[in-house]
Design a protein around this nucleic acid. Structure first.
Length: 571
RNA sequence: CGGAGUGUAGCGCAGCCUGGUAGCGCACCUGCUUUGGGAGCAGGGGGUCGAAGGUUCGAAUCCUUUCACUCCGACCA
C-alpha cells in the first residue's frame, strides 16, 4: 500500500488523558481513534493488525478442531432470564427495547446463545464432543473504561464453548485449550504466564488465566520461584504461615481471660499494648455483603493481624455478589462493638467467616465484643463451615506446592479458560441422550481471548521511547520502504521496483511515497513500528539501500538484491 | 457508587481571578526555497468558548442547573 493514499493520521502529541504506552502510541501512530468512553474506531493500520491477530487465533483454533460460527450480537432478554443472568449480571449488561417493547441485550458473552444453539441441534452423545467459537464484538457497560484498548466497553473477543458427555472429556479439552492458547500467544511474540484463577461464584472445578507480564497490568499475580505455580492474587494459595521465631523462654504465654484495653481499636495499637507480634492477634474486617434482589447483610471476616483480607475470596466465602464498606453506625446498630469484635460471643444472627489458617491455633488475642476489652489466650475451636480461605497472599510467603518463595508481579489478562460443568446446560435444559438412552445435561467448558486487548498487550510489552515495535504476526505490514527524497527520480524508481518485487513475493509492504523530508518519515516509521524498514536514499549512488530492524534499530547496507533476500528471510 | 478535576480550532494549551472585538504551538491549505532525522519564509482557512438558564449596556470570564470526559478510591474496625 502507498502511504500517500492511506489514512494514517500520525500525531506528535497524544491526548493528555492517555497514560499507557499502548494507548499513547496506538493513538499517535493512527491505529485507533477515540469516539467516547471506552469506544474506539479502528483506522486502516489498526484494522490490519487486528485482522492479523484474529487470523492467528483462527488458524490455531481451527487446527485444534474448533469450528467458527457467528451468533447474533443482539440477543433476546428471554434467554438471559432463563439462565438467571438477566438480573444477576448487573449494570454491565446493556439492555434495551425495540419498537414493539420487546427486551434485548447486547451480548457481553454468549453462553446463553451458544447453549440455545446447541440444545436445538445436538441430541446424541454421538455428536460430542463439540467446540464452537466466534470472534466477535462484545459490549460490556464497564463502570470505568480506561487505558485505551485495554479496558473498553466495546471490544473484540474470541469466545469458545465446548460440549461434552462427561467431566473427563471436558477436562481433556480444557488441557487441549491450555496448549492451544499457549501456542497462540507464543506465535504473537508475547511473554506470558498461565495462572490459576478465581472460579468465582459460578463454581466449576477450575479456571486458568493467561497473563501477559507487564507493569501496567490490572491484575496482580503470584508466582513461585521454585516450581511453575502461578495464580491470580484472587485465587492464590500459600503454605500456612509460621509463627515468628522466639528466643528460648521468650514465647508469649497467655493466661485466658478478658483484658481491659482502652484505645486499642487498631491492630497496631493492640500489638503495642501487649508488646506482641501481630501474628498472634485476630483482626475483624467488617463488610456489607450484597446479594440478589438488593438483600444486604453485615458479615465479619476474622484473620491474623498480619494478614490482609482478599476481597474476591471473601466474597466467594459468603456467596455474595459484592462486598461494600460498612459504617461504624451500622455496626453499632447491629449490636456490634467496632474495634473490639471477636467471633466468640457475637450477637445472634451475625454472619462471619474465619480464615482457615487459624483453625486449631491457640494463644491468640481478639476482641471480646465488649467496649474496651480484648480476650486473651484464645484457642480457635472447630467452627466447621465458618472456615474459609480469606487471606491475600503476599511476596515472601511460601509456596503450598514446593515450599519455594512466592513473589508478585502484574499481568494483563488476555485469555481465560474455564471448566464450566452444567452451570448453563442444566437451567437452560440443554440435554443429550447418552449410550443408555438416558437424558443428561451437557458438560461444558468455556474459553475466551481478548483479541483487541491483545493489541494493547503486545505494545505494552513491545515498545521503546520512539513508538510501537510490532511482533512479526501482529504487524500491520511486514515492511515499510522509505523513499528519502521523493523528488529524486532514481530513488523513487528504485523504491517502486523493490515495492513491486517484494509484493510479488507475498510480502505486505507499505511504501512511504509522501512528499515529506527524510526525518519526518523516519519518525513515522519508528512510531508506527513496522518490524522491517528499507531506506532508499543517498547510498543508492553506490547501489546500496539500508535495511533497518525496528526492534533495536539495527541498520545494514545492502545491495537491492541482497535487501530483497534479507527481507524474505525475515518475514 | 464516593471524592477530586477538566471542558476554549483536529491535537496540546493560554485567556477566566479583576466582564469590554477569542489567542498561541502543532496539524491543515497556497506559493517559493529546502530534501539523511519531525525544515524556512510569506500568505490563508477553521470556533454557536460542552449545553441550558440567569445577572449585566455588555459574559469564554460572574451565578444556577445540566451533560460529557478524566483521575483517585472502593479494603485491615
Amino acid at each position: 500500500m502507498r502511504f500517500s493514499r492511506t489514512l494514517i493520521p500520525t500525531a506528535k502529541e497524544a491526548p493528555s488523558d492517555a497514560v499507557l504506552p499502548s494507548h499513547i502510541y496506538l493513538l499517535r501512530a493512527g491505529f485507533i481513534q477515540s469516539v467516547g468512553a471506552g469506544l474506539y474506531n479502528f483506522l486502516p493500520l489498526g484494522k490490519r493488525s487486528l485482522d492479523r491477530v484474529r487470523q492467528v487465533v483462527k488458524e490455531e483454533l481451527d487446527a485444534a478442531g474448533c469450528q467458527e460460527v457467528d451468533l447474533a450480537f443482539v440477543t433476546p432478554a428471554e434467554l438471559w432470564r432463563e439462565s438467571g443472568r438477566f438480573e444477576k449480571y448487573g449494570k454491565e449488561l446493556l439492555r434495551f427495547t425495540d419498537r414493539k417493547e420487546n427486551e434485548f441485550v447486547l451480548g457481553p458473552t454468549h453462553e446463553e446463545m451458544m447453549v440455545n444453539l446447541v440444545r436445538q441441534s445436538v441430541k446424541s452423545y454421538k455428536q460430542l464432543p463439540l467446540h464452537l467459537y466466534q470472534i466477535k464484538t462484545k459490549f460490556r457497560d464497564e463502570i470505568r473504561p480506561r487505558f485505551g484498548l485495554m479496558r473498553g466497553r466495546e471490544f473484540l473477543m474470541e469466545d469458545g464453548y465446548s460440549f461434552h458427555k462427561d467431566e473427563e472429556d471436558m477436562k481433556r479439552e480444557f488441557e487441549h485449550m491450555e496448549a492451544t492458547y499457549s501456542r497462540i500467544f507464543t506465535r504473537l511474540g508475547l511473554d506470558f504466564r498461565v495462572v490459576e484463577a478465581d472460579s468465582g461464584a459460578i463454581g466449576g472445578s477450575g479456571s486458568k488465566e493467561f497473563m501477559v507480564l507487564a507493569e501496567s497490568g490490572e491484575d496482580e499475580i503470584v508466582i513461585c520461584d521454585g516450581c511453575d505455580y502461578g495464580a491470580n492474587v484472587e485465587a492464590a494459595v500459600r503454605a500456612p504461615r509460621e509463627a515468628p521465631s522466639y528466643e528460648e523462654g521468650e514465647e508469649p504465654i497467655m493466661s485466658p481471660g478478658d483484658f481491659h484495653t482502652p484505645d486499642t481499636k487498631t491492630i497496631e495499637a493492640l500489638a503495642d499494648f501487649f508488646h506482641i507480634d501481630s501474628h498472634h492477634l485476630i483482626k475483624a474486617v467488617a463488610q456489607k455483603a450484597r446479594y440478589d434482589e438488593g438483600r444486604e447483610e453485615i458479615v465479619l471476616f476474622f484473620l491474623r493481624g498480619n494478614d490482609d483480607l482478599e476481597e474476591t475470596k471473601a466474597c466467594n466465602a459468603v456467596g455474595a455478589n459484592e462486598l461494600v464498606d460498612v459504617s461504624e453506625e451500622e455496626l453499632r446498630a447491629a449490636g456490634l462493638t467496632p474495634g473490639y469484635m471477636g467471633f466468640i460471643g457475637l450477637p445472634e444472627g451475625i454472619e462471619y467467616r474465619i480464615d482457615r489458617e487459624l483453625k486449631g491455633e491457640s494463644n491468640l488475642i481478639m476482641g471480646a465484643n465488649r467496649e474496651e476489652y480484648h480476650r486473651v489466650g484464645v484457642t480457635v475451636p472447630d467452627f466447621g463451615e465458618h472456615f474459609a480461605d480469606l487471606v491475600t497472599v503476599k511476596a515472601g510467603d511460601r509456596c503450598a506446592h514446593c515450599g519455594g518463595r512466592l513473589s508478585t508481579t502484574r499481568g494483563i489478562e488476555v485469555g481465560h479458560i474455564f471448566q464450566l460443568g452444567t452451570r448453563y446446560s442444566e437451567p437452560l435444559g440443554a440435554t443429550f441422550l447418552d449410550e443408555n438412552g438416558k437424558s443428561r445435561p451437557f458438560v461444558m467448558g468455556t474459553y475466551g481471548i481478548g483479541v483487541s486487548r491483545l493489541l494493547a498487550a503486545i505494545i505494552e510489552q513491545h515498545h521503546d521511547d520512539r513508538g510501537c515495535i510490532w511482533t512479526r504476526e501482529s504487524a500491520p505490514f511486514d515492511l515499510e520502504i522509505v523513499v528519502s527524497n521523493i523528488a529524486n527520480d532514481e530513488e523513487r524508481e528504485a523504491a517502486e521496483k523493490l515495492y513491486r518485487t517484494l509484493r510479488e513475493r507475498g510480502v505486505e509492504v507499505l511504501l512511504d511515497d509522501r512528499k515529506e523530508r527524510f526525518g519526518f518519515k523516519m519518525k513515522d516509521f519508528e512510531l508506527i513500528g513496522i518490524p522491517l524498514g528499507i531506506v532508499v536514499g543517498k547510498k543508492l549512488s553506490e547501489g546500496k539501500v539500508e535495511l533497518i530492524v525496528r526492534d533495536g534499530l539495527e541498520r545494514m547496507d545492502l545491495s537491492l538484491d541482497e535487501a530483497v533476500e534479507a527481507v524474505l528471510e525475515r518475514v
